[in-house]
Design a protein around this nucleic acid. Structure first.
Lengths: 205, 205
DNA sequence: CAGTTTGTGGTGCGATCGCACCATAACCCA
DNA sequence: TGGGTTATGGTGCGATCGCACCACAAACTG
C-alpha cells in the first residue's frame, strides 16, 4: 500500500529498532537484516529510507539527538512556572542520568557509538556540540546565581559547570554498570549542588 | 620454530593488535582475520592462544586490566618517597585521564567494550571491581587528610571521592572527544582538589 | 484513463565472518 | 634416536554480511 506514508514515522520506527539492538549488543549487532527483523519491515526498506548502513547509523543518531533535546525541554518545562536557578541546573544535570528506561537506553546507545565519534567525522559532528553547550548553559546559570546572591562569589562558575557536567557523566556510567542506584546518583549531584548553591553565607568571605 | 616461545608475550602481541583495532573502529573491527593481520600472525594462532572470538575479547580485556594496574603502580611510585595525601589522590585521578597515548588508547578500548559490560556477565565481572575500589581508596585518603588537618572536617569523604572519580571519568570523555586539552583537564581536577584539600582554614568552622 | 511517481517485497552476488580440521616442522624426553 | 608434545600454517565450509538489482502494486498527475 504505497504512498500516503509518514516518512518521519517510518524512519523513527526503524531508528528505534536500531537503538534497541545497539543497546543490547553494540553497533556490531546493528546489521541490516537484524534491524529489519527488529523493526518488522523488509531489509529493502532500510535502504529506501536511510541508504547504506553508514547512513543508517548517522540518521539514527540524528533522530536520537532530536529526541533527547525535545524530551529534555519537556521535562524542564515541567519544573513549574518560575523555577529557581538551582532547580534548572539540577534539571539539566539529571537529564544526563539514566533515571528511566528512556534515558538509560539513550545513554547506552551513545556509548555504543562512542568509539565511532573519535574516528568518523560525520558522526563526530553530530555529537560534538551538545556537551559544550551544556557546560556554557550551566556556567551562565551559576553566574546568574552569583548575581542573585545564591552562589558565593569565590566560586569559579565555568570550572564548576564543567566539573558538574563531567561528574554527572561519570555517575551515569556507574549507574549503567549497576554500581550505584539512581537514587544514590541523584544524592551525589544534590550534594555538590548544595555546595555550589550555598545560600547560607557559611563559606563566603 | 615451535617450542621455546613465551606464551605471555605471544598473547600480549595479539592483545595489542586487538587494542589497536578496537580503538580505531570498535569491537566490530576486531575480527579474527583482521587481528591476525594486525598482529602479523596467522589466524590459526588466535585460536591456539585464545580460543573463540568471545574468549579473545575476554582474555584481551584481562591483559588490559593487568597492564593498567601495573602502569598505574609504576607512575604512583614515581611520586617520590613520601608523597602527600593530596599528591596521591591527584595521581590516582590523573590515571583516569588520557594524558599520553598509552592511557588514551586504553580508555578508548574500554569505551569500545562498554556496551558489552552491560550484557555479558563474563566481561562485566572483569570490569566491575576497579571503579568501586578507586572510590574507596580515595575516600580513605581524604579521610586520612581530615585526620591530618589537610581536609576540612565538614567534607563528606565518601561523597567527594565518588564525585572526583566520576568527574575525572567525565573529563576523560571530553578530552577524548577533543573538546578539552589534557592541560585543561588537569587544571579542572586541580581546581577541585584545591577545594577539598583546603589547608588554609578559610572554610573551616 | 494513461502514465509517472512512490513505497514495498524479494533475490542473489561477492565478500567476509567464525571456526573446525588437517598437516607438519621444531623441539624435548626417554 | 625415535616417539610425543608443542607451536604454527593453511584451507575450506556454512552462515552471514552489505547492497545492487528486479518486479510490482498503490496512489497521484495530466
Amino acid at each position: 500500500m504505497p504512498r500516503q506514508v509518514d516518512h518521519d514515522q517510518r524512519r523513527r520506527q526503524i531508528a528505534e529498532a536500531v537503538w534497541r539492538l545497539a543497546a543490547r549488543g553494540g553497533l556490531e549487532d546493528v546489521t541490516l537484516r537484524q534491524v529489519a527483523a527488529e523493526a518488522e519491515v523488509s531489509a529493502r526498506l532500510l535502504q529506501y529510507y536511510f541508504g547504506t548502513r553508514e547512513q543508517l547509523l548517522l540518521g539514527t543518531l540524528e533522530i536520537l539527538n532530536e529526541d533527547a533535546e525535545q524530551r529534555a525541554r519537556e521535562r524542564l518545562a515541567k519544573l513549574g512556572e518560575a523555577p529557581g536557578t538551582q532547580a534548572i541546573v539540577r534539571g539539566v544535570l539529571l537529564e544526563l542520568l539514566p533515571l528511566d528506561r528512556e534515558r538509560r537506553n539513550r545513554h547506552v546507545v551513545y556509548a555504543a557509538y562512542f568509539v565511532r565519534f573519535l574516528t568518523d567525522p560525520a558522526l563526530a559532528e553530530v555529537a560534538r556540540d551538545a556537551p559544550r553547550a551544556l557546560e556554557d548553559l550551566l556556567a551562565g546559570l551559576i553566574a546568574q546565581g552569583q548575581e542573585l546572591g545564591q552562589v558565593p562569589r569565590d566560586i569559579d562558575a565555568a570550572a564548576e559547570a564543567a566539573f558538574l557536567v563531567a561528574g554527572a557523566d561519570g555517575i551515569q556510567t556507574t549507574v549503567l554498570l549497576g554500581q550505584r542506584s539512581p537514587e544514590e546518583a541523584v544524592a551525589l549531584i544534590d550534594h555538590q549542588l548544595a555546595r555550589v548553591f550555598a545560600t547560607e553565607t557559611r563559606n563566603s568571605v
